[in-house]
Design a protein around this nucleic acid. Structure first.
Lengths: 190, 190
DNA sequence: CAGGCAAGCGGGGCGCCACCCCGTTTTTTG
DNA sequence: CAAAAAACGGGGTGGCGCCCCGCTTGCCTG
């Protein structure tokens, strides 16, 4: 929470240019976009890219941080909703839709979960876990969610759906439909 | 259905050796294993590998064909089960477990679904769709599955779960748990 | 405002990979 | 057994991720 180590002006400029270039390049070619190409489009040597982002995952986190923050803000907003079960469901649907339509995001979150590296705080994954955890807590209290469902389970499920539907025709609709299926269950309600 | 074009003896031998090498190499390094390394271990030039398998997907299909066939056989067996809903559920759980514990399989099925290439029949995906479709038909008839759930939906869901849990500690248990969650629904049963 | 120094830069090299060309070898066939 | 057909594989090409190291640039102090 302390202020970040101040960077030199050119370093910050390059950092931003790399993130911007990565954003368009990942949107075009997915999470496996060429780092060399990103550096080229950012007008930067490839060594500079690797210095700022020691791993592909680090770059992905930087690219998607803002978008994930938006989802977290939505979660905080929904926390005031009168029906906690509906709030949680709605948020999970939103997460699924977001992941399915934003190329690379789902893959990024998946790898983030398995990172062998120092699980630095404030990763996209922990942000979502924290924001969603509160919604789940409320839903649990209201008895509208199975008690054995954890937030990590739910996010894994939703993220898996994003991953599987990403890139298909009308990925948003597909992701929403599958999320509905998983939330309501495959067996018909009595 | 007709007999396949007879191959030369050495061609068949190399084919088999490549598949065997790919099997161990994919088990070790996942679906993105190095094709060069596979060729090397098979004692074959890389050109030979590319001649037999024009795409990575083609190789994956060859490697996993037998294992998928086993799953399909299980489905046919379960078709005689007295409770069609339980039969379908059990089979989907089995598919999830299989995909989560067999490195590369889930990825292979996912890419297979989005293949831009000639969707040749008898792919792993169509095999599973056919075998599972029969189970779903029976379950639908018995009213133990939501009518709007298609077999493609269910397999996509289950495969997504495999993909997300693959590689984690105790992937089988995790995959089974998430599949349960999706089948029963996140909302508690009344 | 000037000078020194550390922080940052990026060209270029290394090792690995997918994919393909084409002269050579092996198998089949009549 | 010889010629045609089929398959083989060494080696080339282009691209990539990653890193080393001599050079440049911005910053901070006096």
């Amino acid at each position: 929470m302390a202020l970040v180590k101040p960077k030199r002006a050119d370093a910050r400029r390059n950092f931003d240019q790399i993130v911007a270039a990565a954003e368009t390049e990942i949107a075009r070619h997915g999470a496996e976009a060429s780092l060399e190409e990103i550096a080229r489009r950012a007008g930067v040597g490839s060594a500079t890219l690797h210095r700022h982002f020691p791993s592909r995952q680090a770059l992905l986190e930087a690219v998607f941080h803002d978008r994930v923050e938006v989802l977290c803000a939505q979660a905080r907003e929904l926390a005031g909703h009168p029906d906690p079960g509906a709030a949680l469901g709605g948020w999970l649907r939103a997460v699924a839709r977001y992941g399915a339509t934003t190329r690379g995001l789902a893959r990024s979150l998946l790898d983030g979960g398995r990172a062998a590296e120092p699980p630095r705080d404030s990763t996209c994954e922990t942000m979502l876990v924290d924001a969603g955890g509160e919604l789940l807590r409320l839903a649990h209290a209201a008895g509208s969610v199975r008690p054995d469902a954890s937030i990590v389970d739910l996010l894994t499920l939703v993220n898996a759906i994003s991953l599987a539907t990403e890139g298909g025709a009308d990925a948003a609709a597909e992701a929403t439909r599958l999320t509905d299926l998983a939330l309501e269950g495959v067996r018909p309600r009595s």
